[in-house]
């Protein structure tokens, strides 16, 4: 079929490439697909983009009318019945919470609010304030009923924030739709920190992902390391960005839910897994102190976990492989 170049498709030998993007979850999602039928690629990509937008609206912590907000508002007062896929995501949260012995925890809303990473501050919260916030933090306050696909909060004031893994979930759902439509070569990312590779790029053995030094100010990216992925997901977490610097220590927006303290190093972690939602959850947990056991590699279909080894952000001391298959 002749392709109108105006449609935004590029031709590479026998392969055509189609690229789509959307703004969701306060970031940019992008999909690049290769194949021999650009019309199919485009329509498949659009369906995936629609699903990403749909998930962003449903799981928004800030939209008072979202499904997640309905849970946060009502689940202490009564049992809230939820759709099967949202229940599946919450079960995944529970699995990750157990696997990381509580280091990954989507109920850290009160702690995040206390630390207030949205604004600059020159001090850290008091021990007493942290203690109070911790009382409303922890997945142990959540009760899921698989028979009724319902949720209930055991403690008043608990809030679930899926911000740490919703990007990964959206990418996983988009990947399912692309595969169902017959797409065999694609790269998807959300804000460049959550990435999924379907198959391989044309005439290549893998999608090579460069992990950038977040402190490098020059225009040329400085790659800490690269990771080759084929039919798998990669998540990169960093404390840089939304953070407070107090007494020359950078407190990043990743919190340890067990201590209530913001993480000050290591400052980058990378996880490769079969699913982006698992990779997202565990890359956050790695920064907060989680270290996977060998059994977790099988349990979470985890392929690789890396952290930037040096605690202090101003020294680049290379990478430490935490676990690998």
């Amino acid at each position: 079929m002749p392709v109108d170049p105006a449609i935004g498709m590029t031709h590479q030998d026998s392969f055509q490439s189609v690229r789509l993007a959307t703004h969701a979850m306060a970031t940019r999602f992008e999909i690049v697909m290769h194949g021999d039928d650009p019309v199919l690629l485009r329509s498949a990509g659009e369906e995936a983009i629609r699903e990403i937008n749909r998930i962003a609206a449903r799981f928004s912590f800030y939209d008072p009318a979202s499904e997640l907000s309905r849970i946060n508002r009502d689940a202490f007062d009564r049992e809230v019945f939820i759709a099967g896929d949202l229940f599946e995501l919450l079960k995944t949260c529970e699995t990750c919470w157990k696997m990381t012995t509580g280091v990954f925890d989507p109920t850290i809303g009160p702690l995040m609010k206390l630390w207030g990473f949205g604004a600059k501050r020159t001090d850290i919260p008091s021990v007493n304030d942290i203690k109070m916030a911790l009382e409303m933090t922890g997945w142990q306050h959540i009760s899921l009923d698989p028979d009724k696909t319902s949720i209930r909060f055991k403690t008043n004031g608990v809030k679930i924030d899926l911000g740490g893994i919703a990007k990964g979930w959206a990418l996983d759902e988009a990947t399912i739709l692309l595969r169902e439509a017959g797409v065999t070569s694609a790269l998807l990312h959300g804000g460049t920190s959550s990435i999924v590779g379907i198959g391989t790029p044309p005439r290549e053995l893998a999608w090579t992902i460069g992990i950038e030094d977040p402190y490098e100010k020059v225009h040329t990216p400085k790659w800490f390391t690269t990771s080759d992925i084929v039919d798998s997901a990669l998540s990169v977490s960093s404390i840089h960005g939304k953070s407070h610097e107090v007494d020359d220590i950078e407190y990043g927006h990743v919190l340890n839910p067990l201590t209530g303290m913001a993480v000050s190093g290591p400052y980058v972690s990378v996880v490769e897994a079969d699913s982006a939602v698992i990779a997202d959850a565990l890359s956050t947990a790695l920064l907060a102190g989680y270290r996977p056991k060998q059994s977790h590699l099988e349990q979470a279909h985890l392929k690789k976990a890396l952290i930037q080894a040096e605690v202090h952000h101003k020294t680049d001391s290379g990478w430490k492989l935490i676990a690998a298959k």
Binding site: V39, L40, R42, S43, A44, E46, E47, E180, A181, G182
Partner: peptide, 14 residues
């Protein structure tokens, strides 16, 4: 902005 086309790997289904 959308092609209004729905994807399927099967021709008849498409």
């Amino acid at each position: 902005k959308d092609s209004w086309r729905r994807p399927s790997s099967s021709g008849a289904r498409a």
